[in-house]
Nucleic acid binder design. Structure first.
Lengths: 223, 223
DNA sequence: TTAGGGGCTGAGAAGGTGCTGAGAGCCGTA
DNA sequence: TACGGCTCTCAGCACCTTCTCAGCCCCTAA
């Protein structure tokens, strides 16, 4: 496991390096935000421990920039401030966890382990299922390489189904998640939109499981 | 987004429900560990907020049990203790994040959002018995590698039997659990459905124990 | 061997579930 | 204002599921 520590306080940086190396991690240290961002971009790290207050580029900006460039490595933020809004900001800008200085080394380790256990693959930029590809950021869908245009609702429906690819998703679940919970829409609307989707992405890719819901056929499903 | 809040203090539970609903979440509340576990098992939640100190079943045990059953929904733990080792325990037993009471509502929201953004990489359990496999989430059954399509009732029946694989299950027990308790269905319906199942999964896999009930042949039946 | 009871199954009635075409309401654009 | 796209409702249809019934088979025990 290779970690990147971005921390400008010499003593803390050295302590972290020693401690984490003792735990068996490979540790690299960057001393300002700019340098940290460049090293993280390069890849090869399993997680990043990132101070908020950094010379040249703040920790917030580092995370935001990384996420914008679609780098999803787990980030644990450290901050000397302990106002609650800082924590909220840190998490909202894309960090995975947040620790307030002074922190306990035991807690740091536990959180780091939780982060690593969770892994990186949580947020793929493009969702795929068989020959169906859906890009949430660009709102674009291709089927067997051909671009397909969907309306907003159709897109939201397919997005939810593809995130649950292979699983059966009930109509009420779809109503809850794809339609606005406040409005109560008739379940028949789901059927109608399933119909629209089928015409656009191909009938065989979207199965009905009678009495239970719908299932987007998983890749390589034997039939 | 649908949340499950497991919290026994009435006032806190009510406050969480109100606050989260105001944020646009659909919120269900359970008041003890056992109930929470059952609701979480049922699925349909995008995340769970879980107190550690609960009647009947502690938060630790709830998470551990869920993970053992391969439910991966994101869990945010709440605790009144604030010893650092408790935090480490909570994370190590499978929770995704940890908050100490009293906590700030803003922080809770931010952490929750971080958790939801991360999403759940679900992989639910598959029940097997010999060469029969049943996947509750995908509503899919294979026998000796061949996919078999079952109706809802047939599926529910097989699911109950496979959870009791090797044990004799009486007709009244099946009526209670597989059929709606409210309706009183004739015991003969069970016989009829056992018949349907046999045709689909193979006669020899489902024994009749005259006068007692039915038994799904345990693994290693072949001799 | 026979009687009785438990279990099995084919047939069919009743109701449920899902699909579709038509069209109303709404909104943004020409 | 007219048009077109999107969303959603409605009603009708086709098909599937569920469950009951009646008759039969088979096991068990006297």
């Amino acid at each position: 496991m290779r970690l990147l520590v971005v921390e400008d306080e010499e003593r803390l940086a050295a302590a972290l390096r020693r401690g984490l190396q003792a735990e068996g991690f490979a540790v690299d240290v960057a001393h300002d935000g700019q340098q940290g961002l460049e090293m993280a971009r390069h890849g090869g790290y399993d997680a990043m421990i990132l101070d908020v207050m950094l010379p040249r580029l703040s920790g917030y900006r580092v995370v935001r920039q990384l996420r914008a460039e679609r780098h999803w490595l787990p980030v644990l933020m450290l901050s000397a401030k302990d106002g609650e809004y800082d924590q909220a900001d840190g998490l909202d800008c894309g960090a995975d966890d947040y620790l307030t200085k002074p922190f306990s080394y035991v807690v740091l380790l536990a959180r780091l382990r939780a982060l690593l256990r969770r892994g990186t693959q949580a947020r793929p930029a493009v969702l795929t299922c068989g020959d169906v590809e859906l890009d949430p950021a660009e709102k674009r869908v291709t089927v067997a390489g051909e671009e397909v245009t969907l309306t907003t609702r159709e897109f939201a429906l397919l997005e939810y189904l593809i995130r649950r690819a292979g699983q059966v998703v009930s109509k009420t679940e779809l109503l809850d998640h794809v339609w606005d919970a406040a409005l109560d829409t008739a379940p028949n609307a789901v059927e109608v939109y399933i119909g629209y989707l089928r015409r656009k992405i191909g009938r065989e890719r979207l199965e009905t499981v009678r009495g239970s819901g719908y299932r987007l056929a998983a890749a390589g499903t034997g039939h």
